[in-house]
């Protein structure tokens, strides 16, 4: 691994700096000569605190959304009667769980004659996992339904 380049080393030192400079414009000075002035240097004094807080607010909002998604957000997922209870763990990788005894002992709803689709409450992360397989869609009732069975979907958009 190469060492940190010279032009980045200052970034890793605890050197006090100024608030961001995003743009500057040419303004005539008293001598008539154009000098560069920074919009940001004015904001450093006037609105610097607010500008400094903006990214922290955005980060906090992101963390709040992440926590909400993981802890609180629940969705109803309709599992069709002919779908397997467990989907494979990858699209192209072999399903190593396919031949496990537990899997064989767990009949699908179709095998048990249970033709009614199941409605389960899942987390948003479960829906993310399902969507990566192209396996969820809205059904006629407007509910989120898993379309994934034992095989990868033939109409996988990727």
């Amino acid at each position: 691994m190469g060492s940190i380049p010279i032009h980045l080393r200052h970034f890793f030192r605890n050197r006090p700096g100024r608030y961001p400079v995003m743009a500057h414009k040419d303004t005539p000075s008293s001598s008539g000569r154009k000098e560069k002035s920074s919009m940001e240097s004015h904001q450093t004094r006037q609105g610097g605190r607010l500008k400094r807080a903006a990214p922290l607010v955005v980060i906090a909002a992101g963390i709040a959304l992440l926590i909400f998604a993981v802890v609180f957000h629940r969705l109803e997922l309709v599992i069709p009667a002919d779908a397997a209870l467990e989907a494979p763990q990858g699209v192209f990788l072999p399903d190593v769980h396919r031949d496990l005894p537990e899997r064989l002992e767990t009949p699908s709803p179709a095998e048990t004659g249970d033709a009614e689709p199941k409605v389960v409450i899942v987390t948003e992360n479960d829906i993310i996992r399902e969507s990566t397989r192209g396996g969820v869609a809205l059904n006629e009732d407007g509910a989120v339904q898993r379309t994934w069975t034992d095989e990868p979907p033939e109409a996988c958009p990727t």
């Binding site: 909002a61 959304l65 992440l66 909400f68 998604a69 993981v70 969705l75 948003e124 993310i128 989120v144």
Partner: peptide
């Protein structure tokens, strides 16, 4: 599926 992606947006 008309669900807001809280996790992805977060």
């Amino acid at each position: 599926i008309h669900v807001f992606p809280f996790f992805a947006v977060g």
